[in-house]
Design a binder for these strands. Structure first.
Lengths: 339, 339
DNA sequence: TTGAAAGCGATACCAC
DNA sequence: GTGGTATCGCTTTCAA
């Protein structure tokens, strides 16, 4: 901004009125004559006036802006959530900062500091996990959507599925189709493991409740060092090369499932018959795959809606009524389990 | 922000120094004793002080922030560019607002107004097109990366591939493999058509230069009303159902190519042998497909680098030296052309 | 080394 | 209906 922009003072001077009047007209507040209104608006337009947001939010101590932090905007599951949240907030008059943390803690905490400094009115975490507590002396409301880990602020709400139950149902689906040796594939499960949000828990629970021995060779866990699809493909390849046998795979994520399917296909295994696979997310990855991947629809729309609802209520000053919102889900069967 | 946050005044009072000194310490400017520094920093930390960005940028008339506008963050090709640009800007001390315009003009112009009001120091358009000129009385530098359309600001730079040449080479690749009836598939080509950035031009040019008659039935153009993959699949299905024959498809985009491949497969056509397909972007979509899709690597990294370079130079106050930066590309052949 | 005070642009109270 | 002015939090100049 080389040239100093046109300010409310310039408009006031040119219109021969006070800044108070200009402000009133521009914000449709207070009272003014139709004549002054037209004059002020005309001049503002002529001069290409743009309000100075910094001045406004300094004065009002509010930015009408919310930060959305997500580990990976390019993951369809997350970006669907992000856009759902962003759109709803926009309808409510809030702008959003979309922040891609890339699962990098340092990056994330520098982001948060920056955001607080920018006076965001609220924070929404979508997906992934966060170990970084918010230590600044502020009272921002925080909403977590499909996100593990707390920030320690006074008002925070968690929105998500009952993950242990969800993965239990995934596992049950495979055994229900007659599978006997079901593997678990994940690229990050161990990182996110907490009591409530343990994506792997349902798999273990199902096995133990049905007296099925856990075969550690069939627990394939990556460390999230490569794109999930690639990493998952490698895990399954390795498992096959080592000669371990299985007829079903519970994949914690659609991208993981896609990698699994690709690995199986390249080994000449008939997916959906020889080996059944189920993913999780009902994102684009499961839909575009051939064969189409069975998965779990996690009701992202409802997550976005409930999350925004909770945030707006906190932004209005209320304390959360329900700080653990559980959203439903449903298994969507496609070719990789139906054959 | 219910509670008023801790300000520099509070720190000054508690430390028994002036706000000027506190400011100096916090910004490592001016001079102060080691004792004062430690005292101020300690109190700031104890109080959970966070600088008020609004006040700072109001005073400094700069936000050190750039806006990145893109039609679809969830498209791997765009998000790769977005993250490339964002990362480089971050290294240079700039934050980014990532804005998803969803190819919606109204949304986009409201975004731009909001961004200007927020005093962004610069704007980067990535992908898609823009018909909306920037009319406000500001002097923001603008960079367009793989983006059609200008904003009319004083300083703007265009970065991208030579699209007519690129699509020419795509077409040539298919004919080089012996194809005789090559179709063109696109979900948005007509929207973006301009002299320099015409993705379809190379296809037409190749045909006319080689005396090949253009078959209008083989020009499949969608209108971007559904996700590209789905729309492209529908276009090809329709063409096949109508009985039109072809043995090659130039797909303007990897997502389009993926839809094409899926449609062909579901019609029992052997992709890579009966019909060859080439996409464009070298994004995740071409890599995860089976068969793997031939495509064009468009050097996104270089685009991001050159774009940021140009923007930084303009932000430093310079006028652009070269306002049309052309980046190279290369055809990447995979199974859908090699068989 | 430290501090007093002006000023960035917009808002809103209160007086006229 | 309109205007004067204090104020938001921070930086910066100039003086002490």
């Amino acid at each position: 901004m080389a040239k100093r922009a046109v300010s409310i003072y310039d408009i006031a001077r040119l219109a021969g009125v006070s800044t108070a009047t200009v402000s009133n007209v521009l914000n449709e507040k207070g009272s003014y004559s139709a004549k002054t209104r037209d004059l002020v608006l005309r001049i503002a337009r002529e001069q290409g006036y743009v309000a100075n947001f910094a001045a406004k939010s300094l004065r009002e101590a509010s930015t009408k802006t919310v930060a959305i932090l997500t580990p990976d905007v390019s993951n369809d599951f997350f970006s669907t959530l992000v856009l759902g949240v962003e759109g709803r907030l926009r309808e409510a008059g809030y702008s959003s900062y979309i922040c891609n943390t890339a699962n990098d803690q340092e990056r994330e905490s520098s982001y948060v500091l920056d955001l607080l400094s920018r006076q965001v009115d609220g924070i929404v975490y979508i997906g992934g996990m966060t170990r970084v507590p918010i230590e600044a002396n502020v009272d921002v409301p925080v909403v977590h959507i499909d996100h593990t880990g707390t920030t320690g602020v006074r008002r925070e709400v968690f929105v998500g599925n009952d993950m242990p139950s969800l993965s239990y149902d995934m596992t049950a689906t495979l055994f229900g189709h007659g599978c006997e040796h079901v593997a678990l594939a994940s690229v990050s499960a161990s990182l996110y493991r907490t009591a409530e949000h343990d994506q792997a828990a349902g798999y273990y629970n199902y096995l133990s409740q049905h007296g099925i021995r856990l075969d550690k060779n069939l627990v394939l866990e990556g460390a999230h060092r490569q794109p999930s699809i690639v990493e998952a493909e490698g895990l399954v390849r390795g498992c096959l090369d080592d000669g371990f046998e299985f007829d079903g795979v519970v994949a914690l994520g659609d991208r993981v499932a896609l990698g699994v399917v690709n690995a199986l296909k390249s080994h000449g295994i008939k997916v959906g018959r020889d080996v059944r696979v189920i993913g999780m997310d009902d994102s684009i990855y499961s839909r575009i795959s051939t064969p189409a991947i069975s998965t779990v629809n996690r009701h992202t729309d409802e997550m976005a809606e409930r999350g925004v609802e909770a945030l707006l209520s906190m932004l209005a000053g209320d304390d959360p009524v329900d700080d653990h919102i559980v959203v439903g889900y449903e298994v969507v069967e496609r070719t990789t389990t139906l054959g």
